[in-house]
Design a protein around this nucleic acid. Structure first.
Lengths: 335, 335
DNA sequence: GTGAAAGCGCTAACAC
DNA sequence: GTGTTAGCGCTTTCAC
């Protein structure tokens, strides 16, 4: 094993003191240029790198960001993670990723574990269980410890922290308008995320947009283990829908499949728009028109906000909620 | 800010020394039960948790595992990550995730950064660039520092470390047999990963299985920015294929789409089998029959191997390569 | 311009 | 049974 070089060793080799070495490496003006040069030369030769642990212990800063995600298989969260990771590593932060698998208990456990000198701050999306039970105390505990939190996508209104979200209500309205412009007369929503805040928000957005035109919403909530394709096929038929908004990627793609199966032509007989512009939307047949939430940008933004707070000690600024714009990516499932 | 409780504070409050406190919390038999009880009670009241940084500095163990992944948007890697995370957190390890985005430079940078007291060991899949250029020195440097590495899926033969892989050659052979059993006469491979070791291995496996039957392979390599659907349609037609194996999920799904577009009936006229049993396969139309690589189990296995090495100081054991079984998940794209 | 010393929070060998 | 001390590797104040 190559032994790790420490300041001590450099000091011995050069016959200088540890503190002189430390200062030299920091270009401290107290030290003569000649010494600085000698020290740096040797440090480079030995490929010296400061022991991150010691620096952290001293400074109480880890340069770690805790990222708490409900479900990494979900393309949306994976993209957000990518955005966070990019921004973090650009600023020389590392991310510690934990996955709650939508469980409240795991969320509590992870937050607790990481809050003890594991990370300088958190970026997180609230687990489904936590959200449906309305639990927030564990977040407030963290904030009391002065560890900043940035929530994204799935947020808790009762927690006073920075947030990055999409205006789902508005985005849903935009989707409705696209369908209306194509001449759709009967619009429905299909959802597998009816229990989530975002799911409710999207449904509500569609409803409001339709009501403005004096139209009514048909709403299909897909239960966990149901036969999606069959339920959707029935839903399409019995409501004579010619336009469907999928509240999530899976609901939308299954709508496509259900229509294909029942011989309905897309987009001629039924137009479909989904949320989340992921792989499924891109590679479905026909391609799925979607509301893109710009997940990667969302991650980037969340990381930026957190790092700003961490670096600039911006704790005097009040928590803020940032809205990420959505856009509609048109593909073959609409005219 | 709730101040963090330290041993020092507990010691002061109880009028004992720091070391007595430390020992008490560890149930050291040297300490009287009465004292142990008093100490534990106060510790609980104050919700004392040891400072992880200090413990790490002292022990030179971080209980962090560095996970280096080429592409987190890829469902396969996301699943592996999930498996790693599950196993790690079960053993009270945290994972630090970094994403190389297939770049050699980033891979080097991250390995270097994390190797300085950032993590106790690595689990990684080699970046595409690294693999195509055949670079391995950066891995060997890490091993020289006595930091164990477990490679998965994309591995380097020239690096002497533990590995977890799928027997892609054999899996490809199994896929061929499924097609043959259905009566396919002309079998082709479509791939977007022809440059990767796994891509080559799968193609080779198909080729060998076909040669055994005196059949020839048609092979389509999809370039980065090509019009996949069109190229595939041409490929299907000109070779009169009735069976296709997609070397990766995207290639397979695009084959489905291309067939749909050109009016070819699946599975009646063309049967399709893909690799990677992800979301695309599950929600394509028709559902895609795939070779499942059991990604989550792969992650779990890799984590287990690494943690064993870390905990049991199993460094006297020689590096080993573990094969994960594949299985074929049948869906509508085959008869 | 350089060095000594204290301290971050913890552990462990060694006193008493 | 409990306390003292040294030390992990680094930063920083204060002497010289």
């Amino acid at each position: 094993m190559r032994k790790k070089v420490t300041l001590k060793q450099l000091a011995q080799e050069l016959g200088l003191s540890i503190s002189t070495i430390s200062k030299s490496l920091k270009n401290d003006p107290e030290i003569s240029q000649a010494t600085i040069d000698r020290v740096k030369k040797l440090a480079k030769e030995h490929n010296y790198k400061p022991n991150a642990l010691a620096v952290s212990l001293k400074s109480s800063k880890t340069r770690n960001i805790g990222v708490v995600i409900p479900d990494i298989i979900n393309n949306f969260f994976a993209k957000v993670l990518l955005g966070i990771e990019n921004e973090a590593s650009k600023n020389n932060y590392k991310i510690i990723t934990v996955i709650t698998n939508e469980s409240y208990e795991k969320e509590v456990e992870y937050l607790d574990m990481l809050s003890y000198n594991g990370v300088d701050g958190f970026i997180l999306a609230v687990a489904q269980e936590t959200q449906s039970k309305g639990l927030v105390e564990h977040f407030n505990e963290i904030l009391k410890d002065d560890i900043p939190i940035v929530m994204f996508d799935r947020v808790s209104d009762e927690v006073y922290c920075d947030k990055v979200v999409v205006d789902d209500n508005k985005a849903a309205g935009n989707a409705v308008n696209v369908l209306l412009d194509q001449g759709c007369k009967n619009i429905g929503v299909v959802s597998t995320i009816h229990k989530l805040s975002v799911g409710k928000e999207r449904m509500q957005g569609v409803k409001e947009a339709l009501e403005e035109k004096g139209m009514e919403l048909s709403y299909l909530k897909l239960r966990q283990n149901a036969d999606y394709d069959e339920e959707i096929a029935k839903f399409l038929k019995s409501n004579q829908l010619d336009g469907v908004i999928g509240a999530d990627e899976i609901a939308a793609v299954c709508t496509l499949n259900a229509a294909n199966k029942s011989g309905l032509k897309i987009p001629d007989e039924v137009s479909v728009i989904g949320f989340t512009n992921g792989m499924l939307a891109k590679y479905s047949y026909p391609g799925l028109t979607t509301v893109s939430q710009h997940a990667k940008r969302m991650g980037k933004t969340a990381a930026k906000i957190l790092i700003d707070k961490l670096e600039l000690r911006a704790d005097r600024y009040l928590p803020d909620t940032k809205y990420i714009n959505t856009s509609i990516v048109k593909r073959g499932s609409t005219k």
